[in-house]
Amino acid sequence: MSEAITREEVAKVARLARLRLSGDELDMFTEQLGQILEHARDMNALDLADVAPTAHPFGLTNVVREDVVEESLDRDTVLAMAPDARDQRFAVPRIQGEAP
């Protein structure tokens, strides 16, 4: 078992992502995520002081579109895809709490 991430941390991440994991799955993902984090730890061992962080493989900046209105989807088509719709709106089950 890796020490890079604990079983409790994986359980917390799963809960935040609304994933229900079995005990076996928790073990498996703790192992797998641990391996990924080990890899990151390997990179941390390197001296990267002069290397800028890379968040994107392309060195692109300022990718923008002009402020032009384009056609939206047909409402009937959109609402037909929803599990439930009423009064031209998406119907959702009872909401348990306020918005974050």
Binding site: E70, S72, V78
Partner: peptide, 18 residues
């Protein structure tokens, strides 16, 4: 981030896209 119209008071769900 999309070309849907930014308009207050449109009919519900008429300014939506993927």
């Amino acid at each position: 981030f999309c070309g849907c119209e930014n308009h207050f008071g449109s009919e519900p769900n008429t300014n939506v896209c993927p």
